[in-house]
Design a binder for these strands. Sequence first.
DNA 1: TATGAATGAGCTTTCATTCAT
DNA 2: TATGAATGAAAGCTCATTCAT
Lengths: 190, 190, 190, 190
Amino acid sequence: MDAAVEEFAERGFASARMAAVASRAGVTKGLLYHYFPGGKLDLFRAAIVGCVNPLFEEARRLAAGFSGSRRELLEALIDLGYGRTEMERREHILLKLLLIEADRFPELAELYQSTMLQPSLDLAREVVKAGSAAGDFRPGAADEPGLAAVLLAPIVMSAVWRMMLGAEKAPSSQAMRNAHLDLIMRGLAP
Amino acid sequence: MDAAVEEFAERGFASARMAAVASRAGVTKGLLYHYFPGGKLDLFRAAIVGCVNPLFEEARRLAAGFSGSRRELLEALIDLGYGRTEMERREHILLKLLLIEADRFPELAELYQSTMLQPSLDLAREVVKAGSAAGDFRPGAADEPGLAAVLLAPIVMSAVWRMMLGAEKAPSSQAMRNAHLDLIMRGLAP
Amino acid sequence: MDAAVEEFAERGFASARMAAVASRAGVTKGLLYHYFPGGKLDLFRAAIVGCVNPLFEEARRLAAGFSGSRRELLEALIDLGYGRTEMERREHILLKLLLIEADRFPELAELYQSTMLQPSLDLAREVVKAGSAAGDFRPGAADEPGLAAVLLAPIVMSAVWRMMLGAEKAPSSQAMRNAHLDLIMRGLAP
Amino acid sequence: MDAAVEEFAERGFASARMAAVASRAGVTKGLLYHYFPGGKLDLFRAAIVGCVNPLFEEARRLAAGFSGSRRELLEALIDLGYGRTEMERREHILLKLLLIEADRFPELAELYQSTMLQPSLDLAREVVKAGSAAGDFRPGAADEPGLAAVLLAPIVMSAVWRMMLGAEKAPSSQAMRNAHLDLIMRGLAP
DNA sequence: TATGAATGAGCTTTCATTCAT
DNA sequence: TATGAATGAAAGCTCATTCAT
């Protein structure tokens, strides 16, 4: 399974070779077809789905158990986002896979939208709304329908750029995080 | 050339078939190799490069010939960015190709960085800096090193999401544009 | 394997077609690549190597188990050489393949040198030396460093000419054998 | 023309590329077909034929104008043979081409036999016969029908081995020349 | 005489997939 | 559950050859 995720991530769906997945996993091609009778597509779907689930638990845990102002929560979530983009490669791989193949596998787009993007946007919107109510943020800030996406975009884009260009050439995620927080806090200030 | 861009866009680099490019273009495979002796890779490079150049001329023209406040220029540029993401499919295709294949072809990453990303960031920074000097924006706003990337990210991400999810499911670029402008103008205000 | 040798022999390395080898062998091209992942070159190497080994066993057996004077042994070996050049086509094919492709595949040259040429020269030299010691041949005959090669050359050349020209037009190997033996016996006489 | 000879020699008939010949010669493929309407085969034939003619003039000149004993003439001719194999690469190329393609182009075999091999054999036989008559060599030495071929073989084989193995690994042509002369002079002595 | 665009057949190679064991 | 031999359909690429200019 890990083998499949890695192979797909490194080469894309079309270029990924069943034989390579098998040998990464230390088994033979035949066995792959035993477990995934649907072949490459079957394996691909399984690889993606198996990756998505554990992904958002941390963010939910953080938001659920948070004690502090909404300002601080937003900052913590943003830190988590930028932090995450610097650490675990599993999520990067997944993001890239989705990016690459989403338009050729509509179900993937659906999956991404419902399991990753929408929850993130909802979470962001809620935090801003609660912050407005609490006086942390300007009243009505959360009414702007595109705000959540604008808040999320730099975080995701930072990860995308790093995947494309490598950590050295991509815009620094630390600098982006600072500028991002600064801009948001000023822009949302009451 | 158009044929190549289309085929690559529809199928990705790995799945694109030389024969398909040839027949789309109404020539034979042999001729493709006459003009692109390096084969598929050569053709791919040529397709990308041929697309990149005309892309930034418009933005440069706009910035160069602009008469009005820096605030208005920034707004116009952002409109251009979001506008662009809504129109010509060609640039979307290009962006996607770069995103997907950049890490497999380091020269593409280099190309993207030097011809698209860096000029955009420079342009954004310049406008903010000039705006600060003119009193349109808060003094020192342009000193934040990650600011340009944060300003650019929502525009690019809007395009990425639309490519992945389709115009209906992706966050509305109109809404994002409004929220983005609102956030920036408040966040950069003196 | 036989199929490969035949195809290579008939058409040369460059013109040999993998499909032809496969169909001669009654299998598909795919299977060829299953067993010879290195492709045509791999198959070629295997074909050559598989042919070389059995080739010199006979000569060694003859020399090892020989009872008689060294003069008679040398005669028997020369007969074997000329005899061999008249019989099995397989060895001729092999020789030709080596001749043709040796400079394009240095490992083949190495193979020929170490498994065919050098053992032959060593064997010839030993027999002459032993013959000198036994008084069959002139003392010091084996000290001439090029002698072994000169002894061997007419045998090999006889085969080469027959391959090139066919049995009718090439110098008769029977006549060469007689003249060769006569010249040697006189030239090496004490 | 030179370009063609080199290309054919380096790659063999099948692997030789018309484009390579053209570019070696500094012209375009089209022009090749202007001069050799029969295509590759035409060019090949022309290349070979244009090489053969100048080849034997030197040997004939030497034999014709020689003043000295037959023993000395034979020695001079053998020296010429071994010497030649060390110098001009043109003849090596030709020899290899003939070796490689003779059985696929019967006319080449014919060409080789009539223009190179037969004259050489005839020359050798004549010298021996004249030497016998003059008392330089044993009476009746030239009657052995295979003698000329046996005399010629080490010279040719020396060249073949050097082509196959390179000058370092092939039996030394100097050593072969010495051993060859020694053996012949003893073997043909009255 | 010279060019080079254009062709198309044919080649090697790859790889998802199947299946007997 | 596990293997690996076997298949066959593509696909990338090459190259001799043609032909309009």
